[in-house]
Design a protein around this nucleic acid. Structure first.
Lengths: 246, 246
DNA sequence: TTTGTTAAGTGTTAATAAAACACTTTGATT
DNA sequence: AATCAAAGTGTTTTATTAACACTTAACAAA
């Protein structure tokens, strides 16, 4: 092993999850490499949204910038879930060609710090900025460029774990939502089926879930009551000490 | 903000926790800067154990190497808990002097990837290698160099959370241990008091906790039965699906 | 205005887990 | 033989989880 101190590049990759009341989606970029001379399309595949970190920018700042550039939204939920830097991670031919074409040293090492973020898709209007960015259902994501598939899986795992223990589901819903929408969210993200009555009994214990004097409109059935999440109540009533009982 | 692509340095910092049946400890390095000319001690403070990443080395590989260099141990539990890279993090005067003295550009940016690892202190014989490395009780750690105190706190938080949901406590104990030692471990790491009978009832449900036909020796009271952790049983009986009930 | 459609909303019982609590046992030491 | 120190052990109350089916409200179509 060569014991040389390396200069590396830091990039931040965002796994942007969006919930549309039916399924969980993720924002991916359609990466197309065009041959300079012939204008021919060399290949096309999908990547996560990512970018290099600027001078005087924090990791989270870079993630927020990427998110802002794509959606125009600020103050979105962002959570760091891992750093990725396997020496072999950028070694497949497409990735090498891509790095070369974008003027980087294909031998250089890039460390990726991953953030996932949570959005209600209905809040978002995508800003193309010349890049082909689209929502893809999480269940249909298979191969991605670089090592982005394994980063994506890591993010999904981190999201699931977080959802079990922290009230972050609300980040995937509009400000006002119904209990059925909240239940569907848990079912879709965790990949389970939940009993309606037991679910409602459970969430009724969460004081930060505030029922509103307002109902759904324009639905062809009994309209559901709307609820909102109160961060204020959550912060005030959360237990400081671990309440796990071993 | 200057939009320049930077070359950065990656370092890996290890927060090495050790349990001694009484308290949780952490391995820290006493960093002393000596003036080249006068031989005078300029300052001394404590840092986490860390190192730069070598070429062709993975992040986890670097963490394992740091751990091996300090303890001579391999296959130790290691968990990545975060990446740290605030532009302001290395700006205090001691840290600047240190970077300068060790031949690095004080303006360069260092990203730290943090790993924590778990050990029974009795398994470890520290290898000095010219560096003053010692166990410090976690409860007595206050200031550390660089931003290592906040990295340390992050590690402790990650450890506590992990301990609540995964059977990692065994990593902090010798191969054979008593139930009282296991209980003490949970109490010390989580900072709670637990009821002996309820604790035993709870762990008796864990099939991967194997009672041995062996007892403590040389204690001036009723000797306790020894137990071991079976990774094999754990892997075989763990639920694949989330068993959280919402 | 009646009828059909669709999802909302609601309660009980049985099984399991958590919380609170004190005395007896065992081996080593004196 | 007596003392010491921690090991080991059960019951009751309360809270949570799991399983399960019918009525209601709004809209749309006839």
């Amino acid at each position: 092993m060569v014991k040389k101190r390396l200069n590396n590049t830091i990039s931040v990759d965002c796994v942007i999850f969006g919930f549309d009341f039916e399924k969980l989606n993720v924002l991916l970029v359609d990466r197309v490499l065009i041959d300079d001379k012939t204008g021919e399309e060399l290949f096309s595949d999908l990547t996560l949204t990512g970018n290099h970190i600027f001078e005087n920018e924090s990791l989270e700042g870079a993630a927020a910038r990427i998110l802002f550039d794509l959606t125009g939204l600020e103050n979105i939920y962002l959570k760091q879930f891992g750093a990725f830097c396997d020496p072999e991670r950028l070694m497949n031919p497409n990735d090498q060609a891509w790095l070369k074409a974008s003027g980087r040293d294909p031998q250089s090492r890039i460390i990726s710090v991953g953030y996932y973020s949570l959005l209600a898709t209905e809040k978002v209007t995508l800003k193309w900025k010349g890049r082909n960015v689209k929502w893809y259902p999480v269940s249909e994501v298979s191969e991605l460029a670089f090592d982005h598939y394994s980063i994506f899986q890591s993010a999904l795992e981190a999201l699931r774990r977080e959802l079990l223990y922290e009230p972050i589901g609300f980040e995937l819903l509009p400000d006002k939502f119904t209990l059925s929408q909240l239940q569907k969210l848990y079912e879709v993200v965790l990949g389970v089926e939940l009993d309606k009555r037991n679910f409602r009994k459970k969430v009724s214990r969460m004081k930060y879930l505030i029922p509103l004097d307002e109902k759904q409109k324009g639905v062809a059935h009994k309209p559901a009551r709307l609820y909102m999440f109160s961060r204020e109540v959550y912060e005030r009533t959360r237990k400081d000490v671990f309440d796990f009982n071993i």
